[in-house]
Amino acid sequence: MTVQSSSLRRFFRGSQVGLFVVIGLLILLFVIGVSVSDRFATSRNILNVYEQSTGLALVSLGQTLAILTGGIDLSVGSIISLSSMLTSGLINGNPSMVLPVIAGVLLIGIVIGAINGGIITVTGVHPLIVTLGTGAILQGITLLYGLGPTGKVPRGFDYFAYGRLPAGFSVGATFALVVFLLAAFLLRNTRTGRHIYAVGDDPHAATLMGLPTRRVIMLVYILSGFFASLTAIYLVSRFGVGQPYTGANYTLSSITPVVVGGTMLAGGRGGVLGTLLGVYLVSLLNNLLNFLDVSTHFQLVAQGLVIIAAVSLYVEKRRIA
């Protein structure tokens, strides 16, 4: 076998293949968009798609890490809801409270993540069940804190969501982009990053190799909690107030870009760049469907079909017998 063919095969079987599926779909959508409306390919519209990807991008980043280890975090929606309520509720229009509250809310995300990771590593209960449980608890706590939109934020708080950098790039989306690139770099170039892949690939082998399996699992849930809280701050910036169900849809929708981007639910394969492209794909898809003047309801159908199409492409051969 020649080196060329083996590297070609590697190319198609490695994590990169996810990126190319998504890039292909992105190009396809773009071509459709251009042919549907001449307003589609305007910089104004594209910058709009970019801006609208922010929230999903932030929460999906943490979700990707959890899924890379073979787990899942179903508590992100509730973390977002709770954090958004606390953000606007505690700031309550007082500019001097902005920074301490942001710090505090992010810390809460970290603590919740640590609790998730702790329960998972100590009890051995499947992450799906653990985070489902903590998600319910957090939703209850959110509702105890307030049953409707609570508090307010000072003027200028919307900079994160609506601010524009030179050339019209959204502040929040650019922040998310930078964080993704940083995460991609760290995942590839740090020991912990490589251990995340190893734990997801084969947790038993990881333990036998003496890798700090528990610490890795703790870390990914902590990061998932942190990014969920960050998403909440973005949403408060966007809507001006925290709401008790504002995160509810993010629990499941945060998984879509991850799997569409080629990260396997079984763990160990994929990466954050695929997720980022998956986020842009979802954002572009919704935008395109608006242009197509399809009832917004079909956006859901389209999203479901995209999931099915994408995961069917990544499917592995079945084992013997």
């Binding site: 009890t123 051995g124 653990v130 489902l132 449980g133 319910a136 939703q139 209850g140 509702l143 105890l144």
Partner: peptide, 14 residues
């Protein structure tokens, strides 16, 4: 209600 539900599931599952 929902808090109790969350607690019970984690405890039961463990």
């Amino acid at each position: 209600q929902i808090i109790v539900k969350g607690l019970v599931i984690i405890i039961a599952a463990s």
